[in-house]
Design a protein around this nucleic acid. Sequence first.
DNA 1: TTAGGTGCAAACAATTTGCCGTGTT
DNA 2: AACACGGCAAATTGTTTGCACCTAA
Lengths: 129, 129
Amino acid sequence: MSQRFSHQRERIYRAVLESRDHPTAEMVYQRLKPELPRLSIGTVYRNLQLLAREGRLLELSGPTARFDAVTRPHTHFRCGACGALLDLETVPYDPELDRAAAERGLTVTGHTLVFTGLCPRCAGRQEPA
Amino acid sequence: MSQRFSHQRERIYRAVLESRDHPTAEMVYQRLKPELPRLSIGTVYRNLQLLAREGRLLELSGPTARFDAVTRPHTHFRCGACGALLDLETVPYDPELDRAAAERGLTVTGHTLVFTGLCPRCAGRQEPA
DNA sequence: TTAGGTGCAAACAATTTGCCGTGTT
DNA sequence: AACACGGCAAATTGTTTGCACCTAA
């Protein structure tokens, strides 16, 4: 788990830090390639993942797509350990949020609110289920 | 755009409807396989996608992973047309939400709130950018 | 009859991993 | 010297698509 200083990691981190568009791994790769011609896409994935695990970066939207027959906007909880995706009661959120989007000229058709953390089962274990 | 009745589609829809775990395409496929041995995974993907477009199902979490160097929980907006991912000002949401999760024994470490809709640029066009 | 739907397999795309030489401590 | 790191390419996964046949309307 210990880790040492790495040039590539810092460059990857800064590439994200200096971006305004929430880049994908591929986008980070393309941006760094001119400066770091020997950089490999695998390294980008490895480091983005590591930085996200450390909390230096935030990863938006998880891996595989999941579906829900309840189509009205509601709230989910994703267990970071076992990957379970649970429903939460629909709790009204501050409508101020919708307004904030509208003021920026954005047409809001819906929203997704996902909590992340640990489910009771995983919280009581060393190893995830 | 017209569509006719399809047994598989209904079974796929019902499989999601009767699940409590927000299944992936693969999970739906595995569950239906015993009853529909000739079902193919491609059909499952095709129909889940179609049902989601129609609004009969909700698709959670978008396609490719995107990263953000702002790690405190904040709000995003995804344009459904061009895929742009924008930041919204951090607007406080009802703290009731955190409490609701805690009451279910869930350890909440963060949350992701993503609005969906159209960005100003795409809202003013026929064809997405 | 005539589109739309499906199975099957091939094609793609996104992400991960093994191997082995390199860099950091 | 020990062990983390990075390049490269192969391997996995997740998802889409072309094609020929099937089926609802």
